[in-house]
Design a protein around this nucleic acid. Structure first.
Length: 513
RNA sequence: GCGCCUUUAGCUCAGUCGGUAGAGCAGCGGACUUUUAAUCCGUUGGUCCCGGGUUCGAUCCCCGGAGGGCGCACCA
């Protein structure tokens, strides 16, 4: 299988030149790909921090260091070379002199291409131009890069290629790497914060006979051993509440959710959700928890500040966040035409929808969602808890004791997008059964997004579930917010793409000679 | 699903009122022992996304298709 034939002529020539350099390196100094270990004892970031005191022209020749990474630039000036090495922590300039390393080693340097992985030993100095630099005495080629890298100045701009070949994106676009490191820090801190309050992290199945807990079309799959059709989960809710019934009183899962629906800047078919349930908490407890969690995450992302800049806006996460009741918000931003009385009437809501020039909705609840989206949501820039949702759009939440039209639920909005959704959980098994029966009827009427009822969940509630507050937070969207990313694909390492020709899993993808 | 935009060298991008195409970077050859988008001289490199149509001639115009982006719709 020769894939050089499948490359463009220019690309093939570039790859051939690199293979020629590899051949020479093998002959002169042994096979780079035979290397197994390199005794790294310093990173780029450590050396830059440690030797910050050096003045231009000064060196620290008594202390030798081994660094390893990818060569990203090479400036050859006859008998000396400056190069840039990128490791996991940053970039470090290297300097080599022919009269010090000798003909043989200098020839190896000349056979290095941009993108090669090397280990280098040397000492730190500050160059005439003021840059901290490793003065290299020894160099080992640890792996050869056989493919040409994108433009050193513009990087890789083609979005499609960036997603399909994220490895290249990560090599040449520094901001990308930083975003994903931030994501990792955010999730790690999320776990630390939650664990510190006595929660247990669990992993529930992603393959289910009935995917419930949300309204969404599931992915279908087949289990050969059981000869069963199964579904990928669309939420972790029902299993986590089973665990609350079982006595794991504080429980959470940060897990992958799959929904077989649209793909756009805020939706990827698989995404990550935090769901957390606390027995004996009410919504006030959850709000307090939510506020402190976000403040903490912002703290980690910004290194101590309580603000995040999103384009032109600055969002402050200093608690307490603003609070406003659902219908108060509608009246405040919409005026008297958006009164509770009118909106809680199906005809009234439909009329409001028409006044806004929006298409008719299939249901009263849907109409309320659209009106809220249009009238209130664009105004919720600073973190705001919207509370006291109408029961008709909250089928899984408990009704308020003193107002049966409303439920104990809030959603948190930041930068006009929904960040969390929380409510006190319905724990009356008869009520739950009745709601499932209603859903089954909707499903029978043709709504494919309504899941089949999970009757075992009702049985679990019949054993008794304590009063419980639950919350869901879309991790990807939260990371978008905290990293100022415009698309969910910018915070998912390998976002779903259509299968496509030569760049992925087709025969010609691996480049063998 | 609908609409708009987009696809030209390995990368970033020009361009052709229809006569099969250019730059910078990268690569290759040369000069250069403190450069940093190194510099200077020379130079290679193209299925202009794919298929069809119109035309003497299509990368360009028309039709169809594919990939991608954005907006709308959908999305507890």
């Amino acid at each position: 299988m020769s894939s050089l034939d499948d490359l463009g002529k220019t690309e093939a020539a570039l790859a051939a030149a690199r293979r020629e350099n590899l051949r020479r390196l093998r002959e002169r100094s042994g096979d780079p790909f035979a290397q197994t270990r390199y005794a790294v004892d310093a990173t780029a970031a450590e050396l830059l921090a440690r030797y910050g005191f050096l003045e231009s022209g000064q060196d620290a020749a008594a202390e030798g260091w081994n660094v390893a990474g990818r060569l990203l630039g090479k400036r050859v000036m006859g008998k000396s070379i400056f190069a840039d090495l990128q490791d996991g922590t940053g970039r470090l300039q290297l300097y080599v002199r022919k009269d010090e390393v000798g003909e043989h080693a200098f020839a190896d340097w000349q056979d290095l291409d941009r993108g090669d992985l090397i280990g280098a030993r040397g000492y730190m100095f500050r160059s005439k131009m003021g840059e901290l630099t490793l003065h290299v005495k020894e160099m080992t080629v640890l792996a050869k890069s056989l493919m040409p890298l994108p433009d050193k100045w513009h990087g890789l701009q083609d979005v499609e290629k960036r997603y399909r070949q994220r490895y290249v994106d990560l090599i040449v676009n520094p901001g990308v790497r930083e975003t994903f490191l931030q994501r990792s820090r955010i999730v790690a801190e999320m776990r630390r914060f939650i664990d510190a309050q006595g929660f247990f992290e669990v992993e529930t199945p992603t393959l289910l006979h009935v995917a419930g807990g949300a309204a969404a079309r599931p992915f279908l799959t087949h289990v050969n051993a059981l000869d069963h059709e199964m579904q990928l989960r669309i939420a972790t809710e029902l299993n986590l509440k089973r665990l609350i019934v079982g006595g794991i009183e504080r429980v959470y899962e940060i897990g992958r959710i799959f929904r077989n629906e649209g793909i756009d800047t805020t939706h990827n078919p698989e995404f990550t959700m935090l769901e957390l349930y606390a027995a004996y908490w009410d919504l006030r407890d959850m709000m307090d928890f939510n506020e402190r969690l976000l403040a903490r995450l912002v703290d980690v992302v910004t290194g101590g500040a309580r603000e995040v800049r999103i384009g032109e806006r600055t969002i402050s996460f200093a608690p307490p966040f603003a609070r406003i009741a659902y219908f108060d918000a509608l009246q405040q931003y919409g005026g008297d035409a958006y009164s509770r009385e009118r909106l809680l009437d199906a005809g009234g809501a439909a009329a409001v929808l028409a006044e806004l020039g929006l298409p008719p909705s299939p249901s009263h609840g849907h109409a309320l969602d659209k009106i809220f989206e249009r009238i209130v949501q664009p105004n919720l820039v600073q973190p705001t808890f919207v509370t006291d949702y109408p029961a008709i759009i909250s089928p899984l939440a408990k009704r308020k004791r003193d107002d049966r039209a409303l439920v104990d639920r809030y959603e948190l909005f930041c930068d006009t997008i929904e960040i969390s959704n929380a409510f006190t959980e319905l724990n009356d098994p008869d009520d739950q059964r009745a709601r499932f029966e209603a859903q089954a009827a909707q499903r029978a009427a043709g709504d494919e997004e309504i899941p089949e009822p999970d009757w075992d969940f009702v049985r679990a509630l019949e054993y008794g579930m304590p009063p419980t507050a639950g919350i869901g937070i879309g991790v990807d969207r939260l990371v978008m917010l905290l990293t100022n990313s415009a698309s969910i694909r910018d915070v998912i390492l390998f976002p779903m793409q259509r299968q496509h020709g030569s760049s992925e899993n087709s025969r010609d993808a691996p480049l063998s000679p």
